[in-house]
Design a protein around this nucleic acid. Structure first.
Length: 505
RNA sequence: GGGCGUGUAGCUCAAUGGUAGAGCAGUAGCCUUUUAAGCUAUUGGUUCAGGGUUCGAGCCCCUGCACGCUCACCA
């Protein structure tokens, strides 16, 4: 452990404490109240007109110190808030107060016991009668100054460098309270999603992360190897194929919240591992799923924010149902000026796009071209929550066809703030059709496309036992958390986002 | 992967090719109701790494690394 000068000074204090018979890392604390409990207790006593002294023992991290000769004000912070400590030579004696001044630094975890009082300026405080070190910090917190004014935390020169914040998230969290709030909101989001689905009689399940055959999405997987079994395994790119097997088995409403892994580029909305929610709802279809989605997101907004509107990137988003519904064909016509319905083949559509001066990636299928039009023209315009529906068949191999339209499937995606939030369809449950779709995919991707999917024979076996009609749904939970916490990058809602390795060590 | 930008003290930031600085933190002294903890003094640097140009490089050039923005990729 390489120590800088500031850290060496603190280590010297540790040695001085031990030499004086005090343990800087005692095994146990003697904390009786959180800061919030202590304050509440005192305010209640005050309101009741009680003269009985409120005695507490509180613990927390030392966040500010104001040394005034023979007295000292300090703030400690625990997981519930902040509390001012008032240390006087009158109660503590000169020796103890000097010990506090000399051995206690900002960032240390300490314990203080005493009587709750209100100081002359009116701040609820602990008049300290005894104190102890709970855990000495060696590295100073990367916040120069931090205080509470009118209940607001004011920071002067805090920790802002994104790289340091992500690599040392512990320091970021310790020093930036709004970061802690983001992750509290994220946790509430996940809890609310679970509660909503539980209340709608969905069963939460867990399916394999290590899979011998990956599928359910078009993405490159991470590959790993089981030494004993001498077997290649893939980290899942979706839960879909396993969850639908469960509907075959009679678990007709299931969901899973967990991690997906995709071996692709990173961006403000992509991380190599991300949290996905998928649910499958027997006897439903994509229209019913749309309605449930609206209700679910509105429910989450209520639980997390207490309201259904949120300002994201300066724009107010309204999550009140119903969301705007826009047929994909119409949306592309409105924004790109091309009616995909007039071009049933990839060649014809590519021709129409070139005529408009749009760059066409050679070898693209019709579906990929439509997806490109969607991404480039339509997606940026979808700010308010919108369901795009009816998607091209060749990029949706697990979705059921739209009756009467051989090129189109019953699929929708939810877009908010120009970003894809969720993806759902009426699930294909015809095993023979499914098999031919797999084969179709295999041919379309044959020319060395590494998104080509292996045939999953066991999945077909499951389908052949019969799966009830159902609507399936997938949503990026990180992206929902971004929207609800007004964060413009996924890294801000991941505690430990993926960063490149450093060259040291 | 491409383009643009950034990298200087623990943190936030300065510094025409000419002595590397400030605020806060730290250290020392003074101070019995503070709240950007006041006054006084003071310590602290592999300027991301490695090469080059130059009498002289934080600054200019090259290579590499990391981060940010952006484009590409990504159902």
């Amino acid at each position: 452990m390489e120590l800088n000068d500031l850290e060496k000074i603190r280590v010297a204090k540790i040695e001085a404490m031990r030499a004086a018979g005090m343990e800087p890392y005692p095994t146990r604390s003697n904390v009786t109240h959180t800061t919030a409990e202590a304050i509440r207790l005192f305010e209640q006593a005050e309101a009741a007109g009680s003269t009985e002294p409120v005695k507490v023992s509180v613990g927390g991290r030392l966040r500010s110190e104001r040394l005034m000769g023979k007295l000292c004000f300090a703030h400690i912070e625990d997981g519930w808030g902040r509390l001012q400590l008032f240390l006087r030579v009158n109660e503590l004696g000169e020796e103890a107060l000097n010990r506090f001044r000399e051995q206690f630094d900002l960032g240390d975890f300490i314990q203080a016991e005493g009587v709750m009082i209100r100081t002359r300026t009116g701040e609820v405080s602990v008049q300290v009668q005894a104190f102890a070190m709970l855990a000495k910090a060696i590295t100073p917190l990367p916040a120069a100054k931090d205080e509470v004014v009118d209940g607001q935390v004011v920071r002067h020169a805090g920790l802002t460098d994104p790289e340091t914040r992500y690599r040392q998230r512990y320091a970021d969290l310790a020093v930036n309270p709004e970061v802690r709030e983001v992750f509290r909101a994220r946790a509430k989001t996940v809890t609310a999603l679970r509660r909503f689905l539980d209340e709608h009689d969905f069963l939460e399940v867990e399916t394999p992360i290590l899979q011998p055959i990956y599928g359910g999405a078009a993405a490159r997987p991470f590959v790993t190897f089981h030494n004993q079994l001498k077997q290649n395994l893939y980290l899942r790119i979706s839960f879909e194929l396993y969850l639908k097997r469960l509907l075959v088995g009679g678990l007709e409403r299931v969901y899973e919240i967990g991690r997906d892994f995709r071996n692709e580029g990173v961006s403000f909305k992509h991380n190599p591992e991300f949290t996905q929610l998928e649910f499958y709802w027997g006897y439903a279809d994509y229209l019913k799923v749309m309605e449930l989605t609206e209700q679910m997101v509105a429910y989450v907004c209520d639980e997390v924010l207490g309201k259904r509107t949120v300002v994201y990137d300066g724009q107010e988003l309204d999550f009140n149902p119903p969301w705007r519904r826009l047929e994909l064909r119409q949306g592309i016509l409105d924004t790109a000026g091309i009616d995909i319905g007039l071009y049933p083949t990839g060649e014809a559509l590519a021709e129409a796009m070139r005529a408009k001066g749009i760059n066409v990636k050679p070898g693209s299928t019709r579906g990929k071209l439509i997806d490109a039009l969607l991404s480039d023209f339509l997606e940026p315009t979808l700010i308010q929550p919108t369901f795009l529906y009816n998607y091209p068949r060749d990029i949706s191999p697990l979705a059921k066809g739209l009756p009467g339209d051989p090129n189109t499937v019953e699929r929708f995606e939810g877009y908010v703030a120009g970003m894809e939030l969720c993806n759902a369809f009426t699930e294909l449950n015809d095993p023979l059709d499914q098999e031919s779709r797999f084969l179709e995919m295999g041919r379309a991707y044959e020319a060395g496309d590494d998104e080509r999917h292996p045939m999953d024979d066991d999945y077909l076996q499951a389908m052949s036992y019969g799966m009830p009609p159902c609507g399936g749904f997938g949503m990026g939970v990180d992206r929902l958390a971004m929207l609800l916490t007004d964060q413009r990058t996924i890294r801000e809602v991941l505690l430990f986002p993926h960063l490149r390795g450093t060259t040291e060590e």
